[in-house]
Simulated assay, not measured.
Amino acid sequence: MATDTANKPPAPDSGSQQFGTEGIAPMTRPSRITRVLMGIVAWAEQLNLRYSRVGNPPVYDNATFPWVADIEREWHLIRHELDAVLERQSELPSFQDISADVKTISTDSRWKTFFLTGYGLKSEQNIAACPQTWRIVQKIPGLKTAMFSIFEPGKHLPPHRGPYNGVLRLHLGLIVPEPRDKLAIRVDDQVLHWEEGKALVFDDAYKHEAWNHTDRTRVVLFVDFVKPLHFPASLINWLLLNVAVFTPFIREGLDNHKAWEKRFYTEAEALRNKGH
């Protein structure tokens, strides 16, 4: 008897994706609801591996996602808006100043961000400052997070893994200094090098680390998007990603960003008024 394999989920790729948030400190407010949610997340991660529509490699071939070519085609427009943002680079927030859980892997001021959106929460003023970038990232199916990730000279993120494998990550190279051998990201056992105008797509649920040992700043467009999954994992993933916005850690990050944003744009307005 013939069998229908069209909707059969692919088997998980063999690899070293580990469960649990290695490199990320455990939650310090483990309420009963939080403990239940963490258990659901652990179960969902197994489900996501089993029901992936695109396999589970650490690093993806860009051809897996046809829209990547559209993003790369307009990269120079994003770079132009980035240049304006970097005029006030010293005033941009360090990643851990926005997202406190990042303090377990980064405590200095050499990893800065310029946030556009994350899990349904938007920075309207940052978006207004980068309208072309915002238009371009809207082409990404399942967009969850978009920001500029700014690695200043000497920055090294130690090995760690992301908190959940229901999203994939894209890095679009915008400023990539030489020499090449002093600037890289390692995902699982693959060492990758950014290129200006080129994208890397990887699964941050594999252990990864990144470093900039050059004497110049490296910047990428940092995007998280929903991992394509078969049902029922797709439904569970959608529910978890939409519940995330209500967790104390996401809400705390939003409050931190709003406080920075108010200072940043108030100071910009004061400088404009002083010049008149």
Rank of each mutant, 00 (worst) to 15 (best):
I150F: 02
L170Q: 04
E195K: 15
H171S: 10
Y206R: 14
A205Y: 00
A205M: 07
W211F: 13
P153Y: 06
P159C: 10
E195F: 11
V167M: 10
H193L: 09
Y206D: 11
V220E: 03
D224S: 11
F151A: 03
K182F: 07
D224Q: 14
L192S: 09
L183D: 03
R216K: 15
R161I: 12
Q190L: 13
V219F: 05
D224W: 12
A210I: 11
G162Y: 00
E178K: 14
D181W: 08
R216Y: 11
L168C: 01
P158S: 08
Y164K: 04
S149H: 01
A146N: 01
V223F: 00
R216W: 07
L172I: 05
G166W: 13
L192D: 09
G166K: 07
G197E: 04
W194A: 04
H213A: 14
L200Q: 09
S149W: 01
I175Q: 13
V191W: 08
R216T: 05
F151V: 00
D203H: 05
D181F: 07
F148E: 08
A199W: 14
E195P: 06
G197R: 08
M147V: 04
R161D: 14
L168D: 02
L170W: 04
I185P: 02
R218Y: 03
P177K: 07
I150Q: 10
N212M: 02
L221P: 02
L168E: 03
N165H: 06
L174H: 03
F202N: 07
N165R: 15
P153G: 05
Q190C: 10
H208I: 08
